[in-house]
């Protein structure tokens, strides 16, 4: 298993947010966490990557227990994280943004160079010297992903990559993610857009009010209209 989560419980102060969340993700899989905003997707991701202090339970990445460790230590093991809201560094140029994400190459994970990323996201190639603040939302979203790939991760957590993007840009995003998968990356994404998730994911977990309510393959989910309607009806 690439990533295993057992009995993950998370608190913000005294507020209990996640309840016994569990998941297992295999090498090279693309898994979607589906659910509405506030369901606990972002908190799950932040907990995995060590950005929330109040967690209990086990998170095992590549055989190493990472729960309780600091964010930068976890990331350096090859677990890349792309936050929601495209938190790029607006004062830094595209090149500099990529430089911040740079980590040494690692075994068992594709190694990325800026040039390869410019091929993956052709829009970025035209604006290497442009400050991040002067890019459109779609370009910024691509830059956040590219920046994380500079760390040569073997697993990437993508938090709502399609949120707030034009449908056309979302299609480009789907193509890029498919290419990343082809390179052997394991991808976990959180989504509310089922159409988009369907294009790229193998399996899905549905999370609601901090609990995992459903897990199964994308095809099973398709075939299960009750679940779809209960949590994700379109």
């Amino acid at each position: 298993m690439k990533l295993e989560i057992h009995h993950l419980n998370t608190w913000y102060g005294r507020a209990h947010i996640l309840f016994d969340v569990h998941a297992r993700v295999g090498h090279g899989e693309v898994v979607a966490f589906l659910g509405r905003n506030g369901a606990g997707k972002t908190t799950t991701f932040a907990s995995i990557v060590g950005l929330v202090p109040g967690i209990t339970g086990d998170i095992v990445f590549d055989g190493t227990t990472v729960s309780g460790r600091k964010a930068h230590e976890i990331v350096r093991l090859g677990l890349g994280y792309v936050p929601e809201d495209r938190r790029i560094f607006t004062d830094l140029t595209v090149e500099e943004n990529l430089m911040v994400g740079r980590q040494p190459p690692r075994e068992g994970a594709p190694t990325w160079t800026p040039d390869m990323l410019y091929t993956l996201f052709p829009n970025l190639a035209e604006m290497r010297k442009r400050p991040g603040g002067q890019m459109s939302g779609g370009e910024q979203q691509m830059l956040t992903i590219a920046r994380t790939l500079m760390g040569n991760p073997s697993l990437v957590l993508l938090d709502e990559p399609s949120e707030g993007l034009a449908p056309k840009i979302v299609e480009q995003m789907a193509e890029a993610l498919t290419e990343m998968k082809r390179q052997g990356l394991t991808i976990i994404l959180s989504e509310q857009n089922l159409h988009f998730a369907r294009l790229i994911s193998d399996r899905a977990y549905i999370i609601e009010k901090g609990r995992i309510r459903y897990e199964g393959t994308m095809d099973e989910l398709e075939a299960n209209p009750q679940v779809r309607d209960a949590y994700l009806a379109v």
């Binding site: 950005l51 994280y81 760390g151």
Partner: peptide, 24 residues
Amino acid sequence: TRWGVLVRAATQDRTMVAALGVNQ
């Protein structure tokens, strides 16, 4: 220098810098 770029990045969003593997 990369250190300087990291500093400028952290000036804007230090949590994000940590989430990219930099020891804050």
